[in-house]
């Protein structure tokens, strides 16, 4: 590992210049919690690392306009989980960030890194799917905005070009009528990569009655997916525990999981259904209030 260059640009322009100079030989390093593992395992070799920790343009969590929240790529899971703005307007994301790794990982790992890694098991991604967030990408040709669902192309594959980077995410705010949850299943209580995860957002029209239903699953397909079959089945239907069980079972139609060291295909299919069911049940018991 001798002789790797590390650059610490102070602005986005400087960052873009460096990206152009090095091309595919350079990698951006944010928190390093994914990248350092790759370096160590020699999965990739780079000539240079561009540390974006001092770039002001990728920092901060704020209201972009009255309808949107903007989260800079360099925001850590811990910052997002404790942000009042996010907790008020996109609680499902705060919830997901709070369940990443361990305190150390949440203090270093960033949302930009989580998205850019493009793992189907990345925990912020199902939350961003159901929030219908967009990714702000900046590159030599300027800025472009890509809906989160179009960002991923496969495991570890995204639309990011070598000289581009993620600036931040834009999230439409949810008003108070929306209800949500994020659940992940891991073998243990912390430091567990999701075997299956599920994020849910819907407008609550009364106890057990939801519209604008959005459901996304992680770790059950090459990328995080929206489960449209399930969404349609829940939308506008009066749910009780029995129907909740029925609609949850439809999840396996949307999932195409694989077998790996963490779980088998068959188990994952069942778990996608059960995790959703457990989540819906908990909503049913608290949506009486709305």
């Amino acid at each position: 590992m001798t002789g790797i260059n590390v650059a610490i640009p102070k602005s986005i322009d400087e960052t873009l210049e460096l990206l152009e100079k090095w091309g595919p030989d350079a990698a951006i390093i944010a928190g390093g919690t994914d990248l350092v593992v790759e370096l160590k395992d020699k999965l990739k070799s780079w000539k240079a690392l561009i540390d974006i920790g001092c770039v002001p343009e990728v920092r901060g969590i704020r209201e972009a306009d009255s309808n949107h929240v903007w989260i800079g790529a360099m925001s850590t899971h811990a910052e997002i989980a404790s942000s009042t703005l996010v907790r008020d307007t996109a609680p499902v994301l705060a919830n997901a960030c709070a369940q990443v790794g361990s305190p150390q990982i949440r203090n270093r790992g960033t949302i930009g890194g989580n998205i850019s890694t493009a793992s189907p098991a990345g925990d912020t991604i199902p939350a961003l799917f159901v929030l219908e967030a967009s990714v702000e990408i900046i590159g030599p040709k300027g800025t472009r905005i890509v809906p989160i669902e179009s960002f991923f192309q496969g495991p570890k594959k995204s639309v990011l070009a070598p000289c581009e980077m993620v600036l931040g995410v834009r999230i439409p705010k949810l008003d108070k009528e929306y209800i949500s949850f994020f659940r992940k299943l891991g073998q243990r209580k912390s430091l567990a990569i999701s075997i299956v995860s599920v994020a849910f957002v819907a407008k609550c029209q009364g106890p057990g009655l939801f519209t604008d239903v959005r459901v996304a699953f992680g770790a059950v397909a090459p990328t995080v997916i929206r489960a449209r079959t399930v969404e349609n089945a829940i939308c506008g239907k009066q749910l009780d525990p029995k129907t909740a069980e029925y609609v949850s079972k439809l999840a396996f139609r949307d999932c195409v999981p694989i077998t790996d060291v963490r779980g088998s295909k068959g188990y994952r299919e069942q778990m996608a259904c059960n995790l959703l069911y457990e989540g819906l049940l908990s909503l049913l018991s608290c949506s009486e209030a709305c």
Binding site: Q187, T259, D260, V261, K265, G266, Y267
Partner: peptide, 11 residues
Amino acid sequence: LERVLLGYSLR
């Protein structure tokens, strides 16, 4: 997880 749920492991 798998062994408790299914009684055997599918992995």
